[in-house]
Amino acid sequence: MSEDGSIAIEVDDLHKSYGELEAVKGVSFEVRAGETFGFLGPNGAGKSTTISMLCTLIRPTSGKALVAGYDVVADQAEVRKRIGLVFQDTTLDDYLTAEENLRFHAELYGVPRADVNARLQVVMEMVGLWDRRSGLVRTFSGGMKRRLEIARGLLHSPRVLFLDEPTVGLDPQTRSHIWAYINQLRKSESITMFLTTHYMDEAEHCDRIAIIDDGKIVVMDTPEALKASVGKDRVEIRTDDTAAAIASLQERFGLQATVSEGAVTFYVARGEEFVPQLFANFDQPILSVAIFRPSLDDVFMTYTGRTIRDAEASLTERNASRPWMRAQRGRR
């Protein structure tokens, strides 16, 4: 067999165009077996399009991708046998029960008949739905449907599990619940996971993340390394005279400060060491100080020049002039 066990996903200069629109503009990356790799990017960045290419649902315009050692164009059947998928939008049959949905999947994937019952119980207990197995999916909450889909994705023991925005549209409580399951899975199954998200805090769960914006990978590393690469901490101070504080920061420390939400904000390396100096050398009373370690928001800002929310807002405008683009989503 061609897989050597160390690289689960290998992508080289993958492109996808829809007519004029280039949704994915040449991405390259590797995911090691057992790793949890995340695509972080705003709406329309090309995350789902990349996943669709990796799981053989759409054909790349150009470039090459291997999943579990098999080419996603030439060896589609081999790839399909080895992957599990949780799509961005639900793909359950609402009119079947939870168990029937899973049985359908087991039959389709040829899970040996003798194993089906036992496996069904294991994966359903894993996501806490065993007691609800005979409930119609129609009667399930969004979080329950998501968990059922995760269970289904695992039913045939895939090598690589793709999770496209596993928690989108769920309330924060349910999101963290889903993440608890995903984190358990990582540890108990040593499965390779490829997931996408546009929640910064969720990207923290990944071993490595790639920030993808407008069809391109902007930067790729561990969340810690990315935050460290930003280098500086954000410091916010409150004083009675904001203008004077800004002037004095410039004068005494050579720092460019701005005002955001009433606080004087500036960036400095090793904020916790800087603050004592600030107190010693500042000429007016400081009412409060806050130091922020760089967050993934700051990382996104540093590498793309805007916040992820700005990126989504501008996309909404772009798509407003192309309403059919959104209407096309989720087809196939």
């Binding site: 994937y109 294991v122 609800r132 023991s157 040593s190």
Partner: peptide, 22 residues
């Protein structure tokens, strides 16, 4: 939650056995 996942712990400690697929 209407269906508690607590009892799932011991299942998670044993990884899923691989199965042959279609």
């Amino acid at each position: 939650q209407d269906s508690s996942p607590q009892h799932s712990h011991h299942h998670l400690s044993a990884p899923l056995a691989p199965v042959r697929v279609a």
